[in-house]
Design a protein around this nucleic acid. Structure first.
Lengths: 214, 214
DNA sequence: TATAAAATACCTGAAATCCGTTACTTTTTT
DNA sequence: AAAAAAGTAACGGATTTCAGGTATTTTATA
């Protein structure tokens, strides 16, 4: 009898958590030792559990899968991490890989692929779903999107972004902040450059995603 | 031996589908007779299967859970429908209920609640999770939100809105939909009038709020 | 105290949006 | 069959954003 693979699963949807557990429990070589509903809870529980592999969602409240990966990997590379996400965008995947993730599969793939990923990652290799590899390449060869990794949005830029997201135009923002419309435009342009978008739509999506507004 | 409840499950995430199936297979009184990856496939399969209850996601490509509900309910009220969604916004819930949905639970609730909902709906009652009921009331009594229920965004407008939210400009959308840029502008202007905003920022915020994208 | 980063401001020209209005065709509903 | 709604298309002009600079001052921070 070989040793079972110890799994730790993290997802904010309890139903998904229970579902994936129910799938894995049927296999002989896997043991789900713990679960958590977000990255923060996961970190806390990792003081008491030492899994071989963490399976984590990307989108989560409190601490998302990418941040969780960074923090776990900072402490130890022995714990392998597989992302199970509905995001197939190159940028998200790229961030996850930079954070040190060992596997990335999509929620629209089935359990066969999940088991394959678990086995392969357990052996020390990385595993990325075909679609993931494809989209990653796309974004790597698309310079407009590949660069927006380390950029930091300044506090003034954040203010401007917030007002943009409140449907104000340049003139109105300038009046609100007592600065020249030219300056507002500079901030907006820098935001677009940093975030990697070419219009307001990309900005407001980013603002909502980052919780800067709403 | 009583008759088993025949379920049909619809979700675009195969893993969720398999997970929920795996959960339900352990119960004695439930039989998962079929599954589908979106509303369109579900409708097609419903010619061959007659479930007691359909369990469906809301966000799906091709045909979403709300549209599916409308179409199914148009044919027969014998088939009960339960939404299992990550959306807890009052507007989405309100739409689902207007479409005739019999139950609405959130993905962050567990299997206990799912089984409870299935049993209750099977008996002919409706079942809505506590948080769902709360948010529904909030949006009903919040006049700023309650008013934008009356306006109806057409399906073509919704398409355009989706593409706008994907950071496409007028020209690109026109090419994507094989229509004149003028027409795209008309749709955009009508969207702005209906939604009550004067720019793209308002549109994309609405799209995200309503779960039309992301 | 250098120097880097952030915030300020201006300019030009191109591209896209926004606004109002009209009008025809197709589809759906009554 | 009539009416309403949805989808299509066009025009002119005002406004705004977008893309590309340059340049000065203020504020952190190494």
């Amino acid at each position: 009898m070989e040793k079972k693979i110890k799994l730790f699963i993290v997802d904010d949807h309890k139903m998904f958590l229970e579902g994936i557990q129910s799938i894995l429990i049927d296999t002989q070589f896997i043991d789900v030792i713990a679960t958590a509903k977000d990255g923060k809870e996961a970190l806390k529980l990792l003081n008491n559990f030492l899994p071989d592999i963490i399976i984590t969602d990307i989108d989560m409240p409190n601490l998302d899968g990418i941040e969780l990966t960074k923090l776990v990997k900072k402490q130890s590379d022995n714990i392998k991490i597989i992302a199970v996400s509905s995001h197939s965008e190159g940028e998200v995947i790229s961030k996850a890989i930079k954070a040190g993730i060992n596997g990335y599969i999509l929620k629209n793939t089935g359990k066969t692929e999940l088991l394959k990923a678990i086995k392969q990652v357990y052996k020390g290799e990385n595993y990325y779903t075909e679609e993931v590899k494809k989209n990653l390449n796309d974004s790597l060869f698309n310079p407009t999107k590949a660069k927006n990794q380390i950029v930091k949005i300044s506090s003034r830029e954040k203010e401007v972004l917030k007002l943009i997201s409140e449907e104000m135009n340049t003139q109105e923002i300038a009046e609100e902040l007592f600065i020249s419309p030219n300056t507002v435009e500079v901030h907006r342009k820098n935001l677009m450059r940093k975030i990697g978008t070419k219009n307001m739509v990309g900005l407001v999506k980013y603002a909502i995603q980052q919780g800067i507004i709403k």
